[in-house]
Design a protein around this nucleic acid. Structure first.
Lengths: 247, 247
DNA sequence: CCAAAAGTGTTAGGGGTACACCCATGT
DNA sequence: ACATGGGTGTACCCCTAACACTTTTGG
């Protein structure tokens, strides 16, 4: 990935917005650049003979060690000026790349945004060579970002909110078994507003994609909630066909 | 556009799915290739310093003579094999381009799909140098297409169906004044099913984006319907914020 | 016992669906 | 007059929002 001129498609990159869920907060996996301390999305380039989706999956796996996750293209960012900011110079200098106009990295880049929903606990964040660190950040308290990456995250969230109406969300964000309240909090965080517990449970259960398990023993001072799990057959069918709803 | 190596971004193209509406049918503007008689979407490339959306608009204007139309990015098609079919050889031969492996056109291309909704009557179809003709084709009776262009149209339609729930559709497809029945037929065509006339009228009028005009004098053997027009202020507000609806 | 959160139930209102009925117009 | 299609109204059903009440658990 350091010297892409030979192996990768020029002028196109991929940026992954990887969402996780931890302590009732929606988080994003970010890298901090060595060069200027700015934070950036895990991104990369597309092999000359590599399918687009495969490239996005490869990039995600490199930073998380996860495979087979929910990963979806959501928008292309194609402003001519998006990566021509003052940042680029700093980044390249640290990488030891000459700042000539012909540099492969100096060209104008279009980036294709993918978003992923992953299980926070299963991720082992791995920085790449250009980064100081790789870690989760609260979506609502983002640090100083590189280029237009803050805008990319905002767009990912916006699309995710719409998808919530059509796609079963949560399977890839939660452990195998979970209380319904966790799922509700995910929905509330994504939507940015409170939902009624009773109505939420009724609605989600009515889809028939959840299965009730045994009791939950928690240390909290309240009634122990039931655990649920996704019925995989129904879940994947719903992923394909959506959760009904149309004009 | 003939020899893009200097002026355009490599490896990325744009394809526009331009929808029009005529005689109660949804149509798409297509070009027929000189080389192999296959039909293709109006497409093109992105200038080295050109915004993505601007490139799509430029390509659309070149084929329709229209400006300021509803034009939206909807998907990226990035399979490594998508334009490597037997077609490519024929196309390049007719263009008089050598079939060397280094040819700018021989590289693998990612294409960004945009869809547009335009007023059929206002379009003056203009073929480009590589095409025999440029004309409208019924979406449900597509001719033999180049590459994966049939798939691109199918995806555009699928996205359009979803957008119908969130965006006010019709303003750019219809003349200034129109009977509600025309709008209903558009919805029915896009959705592929019949809608109840009474309910459709109530729903659309409830959005408050339509304005009732005078009577309609037609030669048909039935009651002359009212004409309506879009209230531009409300229309553009709805384009921004959607037509409500959430979880 | 009390607080907190899960589980369960009830009610009112809105919107969608499926009709029925009347009205205007051209043949 | 009659067929065609527009305009209007209505009854029903389901979904949702809002909220009340009970149950379980840890402190």
């Amino acid at each position: 990935m350091q010297n892409g001129s030979g192996h990768f498609l020029p002028a196109v990159s991929i940026d992954n917005v990887i969402f996780g869920f931890h302590q009732n907060e929606l988080t994003v996996l970010l890298l901090q650049a060595k060069s200027n301390q700015r934070w950036m999305l895990p991104g990369g380039f597309i092999g000359k003979e590599e399918d687009l989706d495969a490239a996005a999956a490869r990039i995600l796996t490199a930073r998380t060690s996860l495979t087979n996750v929910f990963l979806q293209q959501f928008h292309v960012f194609g402003s001519a000026k998006r990566n021509r900011k003052e940042h680029l110079g700093e980044v390249l200098r640290t990488l030891g790349i000459e700042l000539t106009a012909e540099s492969w990295f100096m060209q104008r880049f279009i980036t294709i945004g993918y978003y992923a929903l992953v299980n926070y606990e299963q991720v082992i964040p791995q920085p790449d060579e250009t980064s100081l660190t790789c870690c989760w950040q609260d979506v609502r308290k983002l640090p100083l970002m590189l280029f237009d990456h803050e805008h990319i995250i905002a767009k990912a969230l916006q699309v995710l909110r719409l998808q919530l109406n059509y796609q079963p969300i949560g399977y890839t964000l939660l452990p195998k078994e979970f209380p319904l309240k966790s799922l509700q909090t995910i929905y509330e965080t994504i939507l940015g507003r409170k939902l009624d517990r009773s109505n939420f449970n009724r609605k989600l259960l009515s889809y028939g994609i959840l299965e009730k398990k045994e009791k939950h023993y928690t240390g909290a001072a309240h009634k122990a909630p039931f655990l649920y799990s996704f019925r995989e057959d129904m879940y994947f069918k719903a992923l394909e066909n959506g959760l009904e709803k149309d004009f």
